[in-house]
């Protein structure tokens, strides 16, 4: 179980590095999506290790709500990019 968590941390480091080095906002959003899923999965794994129902509940909520917030943010960014493109011509 501990090995699983350490492997998860290592997998989490890849999108963090990607978010740091990439200039394109959509690539950063992809990294964010990856991190949101991975942290929720880690919370669920921790809840199983501890046998804690409450933490597991929080993990499930974060898993579904984090995705919803990502969609909201993606739509706002898209609106912004459209406006920028419009003022160019």
């Amino acid at each position: 179980m501990n090995g699983l968590l350490i492997a998860m941390i290592l997998a989490l480091l890849i999108p963090i590095y990607e978010a740091y080095q990439d200039e394109d906002i959509w690539q950063t959003m992809l990294a964010f999506a990856s991190i949101a899923t991975k942290t929720a999965m880690m919370i669920l794994a921790i809840s199983v290790v501890r046998d804690d129902w409450m933490i597991g509940m929080v993990g499930v909520l974060i898993l579904s709500l984090g995705n919803a917030s990502l969609m909201l943010l993606a739509h706002i960014l898209r609106r912004m990019n459209l406006e920028e493109g419009r003022s160019y011509d």
Binding site: M29, A33, G59, L63, N67, A68, M71, A74, R78, G85
Partner: peptide
């Protein structure tokens, strides 16, 4: 029950999120 809920929400939401991100990132032009 918790893990089943997580499984279902993962399957549905991640698919929808993939579509939304693809739509938003390619609709710039």
């Amino acid at each position: 029950p918790l893990l089943l809920l997580a499984l279902i929400s993962l399957a549905i939401w991640n698919t929808v999120l993939g579509y939304v991100l693809a739509y938003c990132s390619s609709g710039e032009g």
